[in-house]
Design a binder for these strands. Structure first.
Lengths: 168, 168
DNA sequence: ACAAACTTTCAATATTTACTGAAACTTCAG
DNA sequence: CTGAAGTTTCAGTAAATATTGAAAGTTTGT
């Protein structure tokens, strides 16, 4: 297989995986394109390669920059903005995890706790509802804790020590 | 806050979280409803509570059953099907993780490996593409391994925080 | 064998989400 | 200041997804 062909196939694969995880396809494809490119690309390059509009490129590149996984590169003697993606994939995973945690996990934990606190009845039903809220919080916190340790840890260290962590 | 109100708020919260994770809102709400209910519910109960159509209830309940997190309860003397959700939230997490792994992570790993193998060039560019495929595989495999260890981990430790429910 | 009770399916439709493209805005050089 | 080069915004539209509802299918009791 030619390299270019493999790159294109990768861009498509990544795009369709993204949709399963609530990330929009174009955003994933732009990111994949920047990852496989060995030089920074301009908006026009991206537009042309992915066949999408200028507005779309702009919005998705900005989102990627917000997520901290793509950055502007200033090329001297050029007026255009150029973009490139960090090639450290572990870093990418860390950034995405942090972002999701902040945006999604924390707000949900907050609501579960609020609901737990605010039910003032004492019936068996109320108790079992409170128990459910506790269980949900507990699993969420545990998984969150695992992810947190994961993103803080060095890859190799982590793999060899994970079992220890789980069994305590 | 009245218990019923808290339940409804929980159902909505869970539904909106679901959309961020590529799970459809109704499916999450049906699941949430079954979780907070202390008795099994019929299709009609679900239709009425969530104000959705019979067809929608049927499709989403079936999807939940496929995922192994909801089951049919046969109530003697009744012709209707009744449904209930397992109250063990850790089990829920395990089922969902297994399912995603099978449907999403494994196919992607397979494609990354194929792409890595099939590029036969020897240029610097080709090498850096192969490196990228390796890195992506490596992070995916690592995260996958963590999830795997998590779901296989000693249940006593994990569940020590949870009081088991006794079915009514 | 019939029909009531219940479940399933799926084409049509509604809703949500993403994308386009043109206009407005910004920056910079002369 | 002027206009060329580049960027951003966002209303309108297209595409993707979810939902309905009615018809077809199934099961059960008599």
């Amino acid at each position: 297989m030619k390299l270019e062909e493999a790159k294109i196939k990768y861009i498509h694969t990544w795009g369709s995986l993204a949709t399963h995880w609530g990330v929009n396809k174009t955003m994933a494809q732009v990111h994949a394109l920047l990852l496989v490119s060995n030089t920074p690309l301009s908006s026009d390059d991206i537009m042309e390669t992915l066949k999408i509009s200028r507005g779309n490129v702009n919005m998705n590149v900005r989102a990627l920059i917000d997520w901290g996984i793509v950055r502007k590169e200033l090329i001297s003697g050029e007026r255009k903005d150029y973009f490139s993606a960090d090639k450290d994939i572990w870093e990418l995973f860390k950034q995405i995890t942090k972002e999701r945690k902040r945006r999604e996990i924390e707000p949900v934990l907050k609501i579960l706790e609020e609901l737990h606190e605010s039910v003032d009845e004492n019936s068996v039903e109320a108790e079992s509802f409170k128990k459910l809220m506790e269980d949900l919080s507990s699993v969420t916190t545990t998984v969150n804790g695992i992810l947190e340790k994961t993103i803080k840890a060095d890859e190799h260290w982590l793999l060899s020590n994970f079992t220890k962590y789980i069994k305590k």
